[in-house]
Design a protein around this nucleic acid. Structure first.
Lengths: 260, 260
DNA sequence: TTTGCTGTGTGCGTTACCGCACGGAAGTTA
DNA sequence: TAACTTCCGTGCGGTAACGCACACAGCAAA
């Protein structure tokens, strides 16, 4: 049952940017989904049945290598959506989606996505623009992996996460972060110690708190800014006036918890 | 003036996959463009006026960092197209397109792209599927940059290039390749020596010849195969029956040579 | 209160790559 | 044929990250 804290669809920037008419058409089809920390939303190669619009959750796309090592290539939060292959053409992707920060998402079933796609309206335009921004983020990840230090990449990662949260507490172990960045756990420990000594963050046993965001930005590489600017260019956050929708009527779906 | 060696539009897999009707509608608008080695097609942030469909040229997308260092994030040949932002939404991208192997491309002006987009037909579907494959390639580049050695990456790079050529000679210096991979020139030298000693390639002063493709595949990392398979899944190369078009009537445009 | 588990700190040898400097070989121009 | 430019080979010291091993600290269950 939805509680008082039930997130509103418009917390997702893409859904919020839709005109009232489109919202009125689409919102009745939305399902609210609760996303548990560390659960896997899509497994590599599996077919997708929904497009997910996160409201307060953060999801990472990782590639799992043959030897089992992982690397995150993308972070998705309330600025975007998951499941681009549903409208881009393929049925699946060779990536895994892992919930990096617990929360919720609204999902739209495949048939409605297809139908909206055919209408050739606002949602299609938004989805494509978001996809373009996504490409920029993935490309910049490639650049960052090539040229920048673990310290810089950790800062970038923390910033990417902060941008998608309303608070400044992250629940993730250093082991987890190492997996995301595709580096050793000790490497993250080392970088985290430095950040803590400088007063940018504090942390303890799986809980990180960002104290000085500006310092993180200063210590991060250019990659963070580049992606942010490009995204703002493509998708300026201009929500329509709030539409009253009967959110309480929307049932909450809890995904089966497939831990990584 | 077009010569006997004028490439046919259908050498591009995407154009070839279009039905005769769509070809008949689009081909009259195509312009043949000659692409010179090392010339820059798009400069980062500049607006784009055409979508390019390479026939026998290879173009690389690079990101140029603030300190001037470069890294290639994508290779495009006759399997794809350049200028996705024209239909994805943005007017430009933060990347540079550099001609990595001289040749030709057919280009479609922006208005025709937009119009075809609105028709919601074959071309749109193909463009989106290609974009999906492109994302896979970029993502895998990120993974590769994180986890694999220069040796492996060089092999991958050579294979990516070979797949887009009808011969097995590449014209590029080690300096150039180093720029593409985002590593030192000496690193490429070292890797190339090993490959030559193993009999996989020979090279001399800017000319590389691949002798043993299978060996390259064996020495490369999994990244090459992953992208190839995913691309074949998304875009099986199924050209329509040849349509006779009056290729000779198409004027050749030579791009102003803006060297990198 | 002990036992155990999970998360974090640390040290050590190894490796891959970097930055730099220089030398030489293959072409190119005069 | 001599001077020059471009491209490639090599050596050397420095550094960032790796793999591994282990110690310890916080927390929970028994």
């Amino acid at each position: 049952m939805p509680t008082k804290t039930t997130p509103h669809p418009q917390q997702n920037h893409l859904l919020a940017a839709l005109s009232p008419e489109v919202q009125a058409r689409l919102f009745p089809h939305l399902e609210l989904v609760s996303l548990q920390l560390n659960s896997v939303m899509y497994e590599s190669g599996r077919p997708m049945r929904h497009v997910y619009f996160p409201t307060d959750a953060i999801v990472s796309l990782q590639y799992i290598m043959e030897n089992g090592a992982a690397t995150a290539i993308l972070v998705v939060g309330n600025e975007g959506l998951l499941g681009i292959s549903l409208f881009m053409g393929g049925a699946s992707t060779p990536n895994r989606s892992l919930v990096q920060s617990a929360g919720h998402a609204y999902r739209l079933p495949r048939p409605q996505v297809k139908e909206e796609f055919k209408r050739h309206g606002q949602l299609l335009q938004l989805m494509l623009r978001y996809t373009q921004a996504l490409i920029t983020q993935v490309a910049q990840t490639a650049v960052c992996n090539r040229h920048h230090s673990i310290d810089q990449q950790l800062c970038r990662w923390l910033l990417l996460s902060m941008d998608r949260l309303t608070h400044n507490n992250l629940s993730m172990t250093q082991e987890f972060m190492a997996n995301m960045l595709g580096v050793r756990r000790e490497g993250v420990t080392h970088a985290a110690i430095k950040l803590q000594q400088q007063g940018a963050i504090t942390y303890s046993r799986g809980h990180i708190k960002v104290l000085d965001r500006e310092q993180l930005e200063a210590l991060s590489c250019e990659c963070y800014e580049v992606v942010k600017k490009e995204t703002e260019l493509l998708l300026p956050y201009l929500p329509q006036r709030q539409v009253i929708t009967n959110v309480a009527a929307i049932p909450v779906v809890v995904l089966p918890t497939t831990k990584a």
